[in-house]
Design a binder for these strands. Structure first.
Length: 262
DNA sequence: AGTACCACCTGACGGC
DNA sequence: TGCCGTCAGGTGGTAC
């Protein structure tokens, strides 16, 4: 699931639930998730602390626990958070758990084990170290245009590269290009300034709508293409069949009459 | 530099 | 029913 809107939804959920709760202990049920770090090591830093604030950059979520550092969460393809009372609710895919003194548990659910959780000093160094570009939801237009101008290749892979703009994945870059009427295989360098500006505006619009609806496809407007994914759907604008193609070995959905290649 | 393919994993689904 | 191939909203490595 997790692209920018999903991660933002998880972060808001975290703020409503686990934030400011005193940590009793953390439990590692898969060392794959923690990059080999043991429960003991993590507890040394986290025990008796509380997460004081949260943040997000692209698809990464940060939970700060004071001057000591920040817990970084990356959800992979299948991750999400759950907060519930009592240990009975813990399921087989809950791979990392934070037990709070109030008897509640924050579970990092990660079926495919492609997610990661680790501790860092601060988020800014991490973003720099990872070479992440500016966050897609907060980037300004001039920066966006400059970054897109720097990319060769298809506009879709330009949007998806996290060292350019950070936060867009396969689903939402398809949606943005559909809303903008741009073919995903159009070469980024062929885009005119007004087309880039349109993509920028549609990016903000799509992300805003998706966050408002908690990244739940069922609640998104009927004008969104992503509702038609995986079901041989029709273009919500012209009614023609949605087309599929591969870009960087990922399936891209688009409408061949509303999105013309240049 | 861009793209194509593989790997990491588990599970759902369609075809036979 | 069961087995098998394929695919899935991410990232990182390698080879052309």
């Amino acid at each position: 699931m997790p692209e920018l809107p999903d991660v933002e939804t998880f972060r808001r959920y975290f703020n409503r639930t686990a934030l400011r709760q005193k940590i009793k202990t953390v439990e590692v049920r898969s060392k794959k998730i923690t990059g080999g770090a043991t429960q003991k090591t993590l507890n040394r830093k986290l025990r008796d602390k509380a997460f004081k604030s949260s943040d997000r950059h692209g698809k990464y979520m940060f939970a700060e626990f004071g001057k000591e550092g920040v817990m970084v969460l990356h959800f992979g393809m299948t991750g999400f958070l759950r907060y519930f009372k009592g240990k009975e609710g813990i399921g087989p895919h809950d791979k990392f758990l934070v037990h709070f003194k109030n008897r509640y548990v924050l579970a990092f659910n990660n079926r495919r084990l492609l997610g990661k959780i680790f501790l860092k000093k601060n988020k800014d160094d991490f973003i720099k170290e990872k070479k992440l570009g500016p966050d897609a939801y907060s980037v300004d237009y001039d920066t966006f245009r400059r970054l897109l101008r720097n990319k060769k290749g298809s506009v879709k892979s330009a949007l998806m590269k996290q060292d350019g703009i950070s936060g867009l994945g396969n689903i939402y870059s398809d949606e943005i290009l559909f809303q903008a009427g741009a073919h995903p295989k159009t070469h980024a360098e062929k885009l005119k300034d007004n087309e880039i500006e349109n993509i920028y505006k549609k990016m903000k619009y799509v992300l805003k709508k998706a966050i408002e609806q908690k990244a739940n496809p069922d609640d998104l407007p009927e004008s969104f293409l992503l509702k038609e994914r995986d079901k041989e759907g029709k273009c919500p604008r012209c009614g023609k069949s949605v087309k599929l193609t591969k870009i960087n070995s990922r399936t891209s959905y688009f409408c061949s009459s509303c999105q013309v290649k240049k």
